[in-house]
Design a protein around this nucleic acid. Sequence first.
DNA 1: CTGAAAGCGCTTACAG
DNA 2: CTGAAAGCGCTTACAG
Lengths: 338, 338
Amino acid sequence: MTIADVAKAAGVSVPTVSRILNNKEYVADETRQRVHEAIRTLGYAPHTQARRLRGGATMTLALHHPIESPHDLSSVIETSYFTGTAEAASEKEYFINFLVSRLTPESLLNMYRSNQIDGIILLQVRLDDWRVNLLRENNYPFVMIGRCADLEGLSFIDLDFENAMLLAFDHLVGLGHRNIGFLTYPEAWRKVGIGPAVRSLDGYTRALNQYGLRSCYREIGLNSVEEGFEGTNDLLQENPELTAIVTVSHLTAAGSIKALALHGRSVPQDCSVMAIGFGGNFASVVTPSLTTLEWSPYEISYNATILMTETLATVQFPVQQVLVPPKLVIRESTKEVS
Amino acid sequence: MTIADVAKAAGVSVPTVSRILNNKEYVADETRQRVHEAIRTLGYAPHTQARRLRGGATMTLALHHPIESPHDLSSVIETSYFTGTAEAASEKEYFINFLVSRLTPESLLNMYRSNQIDGIILLQVRLDDWRVNLLRENNYPFVMIGRCADLEGLSFIDLDFENAMLLAFDHLVGLGHRNIGFLTYPEAWRKVGIGPAVRSLDGYTRALNQYGLRSCYREIGLNSVEEGFEGTNDLLQENPELTAIVTVSHLTAAGSIKALALHGRSVPQDCSVMAIGFGGNFASVVTPSLTTLEWSPYEISYNATILMTETLATVQFPVQQVLVPPKLVIRESTKEVS
DNA sequence: CTGAAAGCGCTTACAG
DNA sequence: CTGAAAGCGCTTACAG
């Protein structure tokens, strides 16, 4: 079933059918009708691959998170990153490829060279990121969720993590807390230049200065209840006077709450706990439900994908650099200091 | 940069390069070397779209969950369903399309007709499912994660939910529990024939018979802490003698634990709670961490995708029907009845 | 072992 | 307003 079958059935030539398919002008109404009817009765749909070959664009994007094993993705990425990307791509009539296997410089270049993709959306961008360097050098289109150090000419959408730190302390200090502990990403993450790991500590330092507070933090493994538990234990041993703890994930926060319980302290009566990161179900499944500074991964990935498609659709599309502010959602895990 | 450029650089014809690219026999070693070198120096990669047009297969699959809004997907699907599918597809050199928008019969047929996909993996299959009926009628390839009522000639991988119910009661009865409540999916889900909603109640009935227990269950909304809370409240009001509660999601279980706390009962000392569904982080973020009967969505979706690719690769590939048994993982939320 | 020819299904100039 | 011709980049018979 090809365009030729439609042409024959309607008694016209192939180019005429093509014109009608693509809503070009200069087609007689009567012809248009006849062709549309042929299309309908035959149940014809144009061959996507052929259109793409002819059109020169693959109409396909990729989304990439640099992780060792796809098994682990579910602990660092919310489903909404996939659905937001998929929805935006679908609206713009793009396909999307989720890259979950290890990506090498060679295979990344190959995706463009072999016309598998027109552009890519990068997650978990480091300050100095080989993917960014490579794509920039080769002048291949991409968009970041996150950002590197040298942003000249690059489009990104990133979480305003530094601001989130300030707002977290705003909230807690407003409730009268002065002894606030902080559990953040692993030191290793900061050393390799992963944005939030670096910027959360920057924001933390600024918050301490702003409110004249004493430093009291710990770098731990991300996204594990156990690590949150251990880190909080350490923190409490050295600083029994803590009345609040800020964490960077709901899992760490859950661990904190367990550790506090072990020390005979319940949340929020004897200690407040906050989480910076995702909200929704992730925050309310914890008991007590978590007060958060949160972003919508759905919206962020949706917007980044739209940005990518617009960049591809327009010659010399202007660079866009967006910092998304977090939203404070007060649930059950914070209260006034007693 | 096309195959013609490589041919010219190597001083051979285009078909020769093609043969070498596709590892065909009957090429002189010397020629092969020369061409490979040209490919390397030019950085050539074959045009994916062209290969597909020529090859007749799209090498693309789709994954579909019938949900109203993509926003809600993250509360019913684990990220691992995406990563498992993506990983398997990538290994088999397939692309994968995640369909998150509303799918109509027309648009589903169109995906095949317009050569966007070779096959589809269906999630959340109903006993009588329009997608299954339509694809079967049109003889388009597909695989189910889940299963419909008439399975004649259809391949699927499904969770053995009925068995999970029996195993849950095994575990609890083994701990001495006799008064066990059950919170399951909404009545509406059962009415429209969603598999687990139907089969969990079947399994429940069998478990009651097997152990001579009294019926005590409630159908509630899925995957909400609030619904779990409400449902448990109702259950406890009518059956204060309950010593254990079985739920079908970690969210519901979290709600149960909250409701029990409100009634002055802590888990697992005063009441055990189990969840059937996903494990991993989902189970351990709850306090106390949940004893579960769990499946790996990564493995299930991975296997379903491999099954789909094998079905497509082989003429008359034998039908495969797989029921995956759940794994009992004992964590903190169950203990012997006191 | 290698090349000239045809064709996958479509769209875009180019004539008329 | 419509059709004959060329071509997107590749692979597969068909000759040689």
